[in-house]
Design a protein around this nucleic acid. Structure first.
Lengths: 281, 281
DNA sequence: GGGAATATGAAATAATAATTCCAATCCATA
DNA sequence: TATGGATTGGAATTATTATTTCATATTCCC
């Protein structure tokens, strides 16, 4: 007999979605509005919400009653609860992690610190990355005969992952490693029909800078990932990305750089497939 | 003349903190309550808030007026705005990113996909990582004379970063690379006084597994980072971590593995410093 | 197509909540 | 310790808001 009144937002959402088909027109209208604008329901008055949704206040109340609430007010509680529980906003959670990392003892604190640094970096790059630069870089790299990947020291792991991914995508590439000490020769093979992905952060590895200079003088276009407009890499680059990685315990995160690197790599893969398809057509 | 009315929560907060000293007792009381329980201010009624804070409703209104608002209602707006603007919860943001990545076209979508995958992975590992395992692994590695780092293919970037970080921390380590084809010999040098960090995910690189088996038969303890308890690495390992990395476009994130790797590395560095200190004392 | 059941709109009403006002109290200063 | 000004408590008042009611419209089924 007693129909279950949804006590939390998710249940409520599910209930609404479930009954969607069987609801009268106006009730359905307010139901859709509620799911689309939950914040409005949480804060608005019955009248204001009704007006925004294009129905009468009484409809709003009927909607609430149909869900088993005894009125709009108790329905609204659920929407308000949602905002309260959402309490641990991303930033607050991060702050907590960071606090634990700084104050806390033990190795868990170190781990939390790296998680926080990585999250912060991802967050930052997600906000700041310029779509146009991304498109430009991908176009440039997609046209290259061979993609050279240039990075040392701290950035080297990123370079090796790029090389791995490019290989899996069957895109010709050359990782410029120092093992054999033949970098200068390797670099010498690059032509303007190729392209370079160069990665370096302060303190810039001198070898990376020197090789980037040399290769840009040969007219090979460079896509750079670096950390500021003052970076020596930026001046050699056709396109460059500024990536600010957060650090912890003296080690910077690589997560943002990795994500960007992957986007470039897979982006090039997709672009080539598209171009290939067009050529055939 | 017209005193600036705080329009956003941060300004309001600053204003309150600024005037704190000069506020009358009851007003100060409600001010403190407001900063401590902003959600209550956002949702409560003047009467309920006043009761919780132990003052009269009229005091609440005087408080609002002193800040330049024309009443409680407009003060409350600021607290409500805060909840609205507070970036949608982490999960919702992620969902949005993922939706964009899946639905959206263009290369930005790819980028968003990788960001979402990385965030998810970080989130997961932060929840699931076992502190005891972490302590155990760090103890084990801290005692090692040489730390061998073993990983191929997709996991190799992590290994190279570990090697870089260990080097910077002046911890003796050996990256087992395949370049010279001398892995078997390299592995042969390891003794039970050393230790190994091995990283491999499905599909497990046969070389990694084979080398891990060989080295464990020599009695060298292994710390493994892998993706499930069925992993062949897990059976050779003294301590192992299960890391579930989210993937996008066929490429798994490395962010969680990286964070764990860094925590291990820096943890070992700290542990050695501590032990060194104790020995001296 | 007719009629009952259901849904909707609009305004009246009831409830609730914000604000104001005034008397009482507190506090600093002479 | 008296006095003026500021502060506070509490009830009265006003405003706002939710809810109910009822007339009208729509839909669905026979």
């Amino acid at each position: 007999m007693d129909e279950q009144v949804p006590r939390d937002f998710e249940t409520l959402r599910a209930t609404i979605l479930d009954r969607r088909e069987s609801l009268p027109k106006r009730i359905a209208q307010i139901a859709a509005y509620a799911l689309d604008n939950p914040d409005d329901i949480a804060f608005g008055t019955a009248a204001s919400i009704a007006a925004s949704a294009g129905v009468q206040p009484s409809t709003l109340i009927r909607f609430a009653q149909q869900l088993g609430f005894d009125g709009f007010t108790s329905l609204q509680q659920v929407f308000r609860e949602r905002l309260r529980e959402r309490n641990s906003s991303y930033d607050e959670r991060l702050q907590a992690l960071r606090a634990k990392a700084e104050g806390g003892a033990g190795h868990r604190a170190i781990f939390d610190g790296f998680i926080a640094a990585a999250s912060t970096s991802l967050n930052d790059i997600s906000r700041t990355l310029d779509d146009a630069h991304l498109e430009e870089a991908i176009s440039l790299l997609a046209k290259a005969q061979t993609i050279y990947v240039l990075a040392k020291r701290r950035s080297y792991p990123v370079a090796s992952y790029i090389a791995y991914a490019l290989g899996k995508l069957k895109i010709r590439n050359q990782l410029i490693e120092s093992a054999a000490g033949l970098n200068a020769e390797m670099v010498g093979f690059a032509t303007p029909a190729d392209a370079v992905i160069a990665i370096s952060f302060s303190p810039y590895a001198p070898a990376t800078i020197e090789e980037a200079r040399a290769i840009s003088e040969q007219g090979v276009p460079i896509v750079a990932i670096t950390d500021s407009s003052f970076s020596p890499l930026a001046q050699f680059a056709r396109v460059w990305f500024e990536v600010a990685e957060a650090d912890f315990a003296g080690f910077r995160s690589l997560s943002a750089t990795m994500a960007l690197a992957m986007a470039l790599t897979v982006g090039v893969g997709e672009k080539r497939r598209d171009v290939g398809r067009k050529r055939k057509a």
